[in-house]
Simulated assay, not measured.
Amino acid sequence: MTELWTVEIDSSVCVGSGLCASSAPECFTLETSGRARPPQAPVEAADEVLEAAENCPAAAITLRKVAGGEEVFAP
């Protein structure tokens, strides 16, 4: 069974650099305002999603395990 993560983006600190969307385009998209938008549904745990969160210049991305809500990555 594959682990699932929820992706949260703090839009009040997102600067719209687009690094997350370029690192994990299947997970992140950019809104017309330029801010990142997380997926509506949980995503499969993947290195590229974790890398996107770790490399966010605004530290706006939090990842949590669906099962139990434990933080995988938090700024």
Rank of each mutant, 00 (worst) to 15 (best):
Met1Pro: 14
Thr2His: 10
Thr2Ser: 05
Glu3Ala: 12
Glu3Pro: 01
Leu4Ala: 03
Leu4Lys: 05
Trp5Ile: 02
Trp5Asp: 03
Trp5His: 15
Thr6Cys: 01
Thr6Pro: 05
Val7His: 02
Val7Tyr: 00
Val7Ser: 00
Glu8Leu: 11
Glu8Gln: 14
Ile9Met: 13
Asp10Trp: 02
Asp10Ala: 12
Ser11Trp: 10
Ser11Ala: 15
Val13Tyr: 05
Val13Cys: 07
Val13Gln: 09
Val13Ser: 12
Val13Leu: 04
Cys14Phe: 13
Val15Ala: 13
Val15Arg: 14
Gly16Asn: 04
Ser17Asp: 12
Ser17Glu: 10
Leu19Gly: 03
Leu19Ser: 11
Cys20Asp: 08
Cys20Ala: 03
Ala21Ile: 00
Ser23Pro: 05
Ser23Lys: 10
Ala24Pro: 10
Ala24Phe: 06
Pro25Thr: 12
Pro25Cys: 09
Pro25Ile: 04
Glu26Val: 10
Cys27Thr: 15
Cys27Lys: 10
Phe28Glu: 09
Phe28Leu: 11
Glu31Pro: 03
Glu31Gln: 12
Glu31Cys: 08
Glu31Tyr: 00
Glu31Ser: 13
Thr32Trp: 07
Ser33Cys: 06
Ser33Asp: 15
Ser33Gly: 11
Gly34Trp: 05
Gly34Arg: 11
Arg35Pro: 04
Arg35Asn: 08
Arg35Gln: 15
Arg37Val: 10
Arg37Phe: 09
Pro39Thr: 08
Pro39Asp: 11
Gln40His: 12
Gln40Ile: 04
Ala41Tyr: 04
Ala41Pro: 01
Ala41Gln: 15
Pro42Trp: 01
Val43Cys: 02
Glu44His: 09
Glu44Gln: 07
Glu44Gly: 13
Ala45Arg: 15
Ala45Phe: 13
Ala45Glu: 13
Ala45Ser: 13
Ala46Tyr: 07
Asp47Gly: 03
Asp47Ser: 12
Asp47Val: 10
Glu48Ile: 05
Val49Pro: 05
Leu50Thr: 03
Leu50His: 04
Leu50Pro: 05
Leu50Ile: 10
Glu51Asp: 09
Glu51Met: 06
Ala52Ser: 14
Ala53Glu: 02
Ala53Thr: 04
Ala53Ile: 00
Ala53Arg: 04
Glu54Val: 14
Glu54Gln: 11
Asn55Met: 14
Asn55Leu: 07
Cys56Thr: 07
Cys56Asp: 05
Cys56His: 01
Cys56Arg: 02
Cys56Gly: 07
Cys56Trp: 01
Pro57Cys: 03
Pro57Gly: 07
Ala58Lys: 07
Ala58Arg: 11
Ala59Ser: 12
Ala59His: 00
Ala59Glu: 10
Ala60Cys: 11
Ala60Glu: 09
Ala60His: 01
Ile61Gln: 00
Ile61Arg: 06
Ile61Met: 01
Ile61Thr: 04
Thr62Ala: 01
Thr62Pro: 00
Thr62Asp: 07
Leu63Asp: 00
Leu63Thr: 02
Arg64Cys: 04
Arg64His: 06
Arg64Val: 00
Arg64Asn: 01
Lys65Asn: 13
Val66Ser: 01
Ala67Arg: 11
Ala67Gln: 15
Gly68Trp: 05
Gly68Asn: 08
Gly69Ala: 03
Glu70Gly: 02
Glu70Ile: 09
Glu70His: 09
Glu70Tyr: 02
Glu70Phe: 01
Glu71Asn: 06
Glu71His: 08
Glu71Thr: 10
Pro75Trp: 02
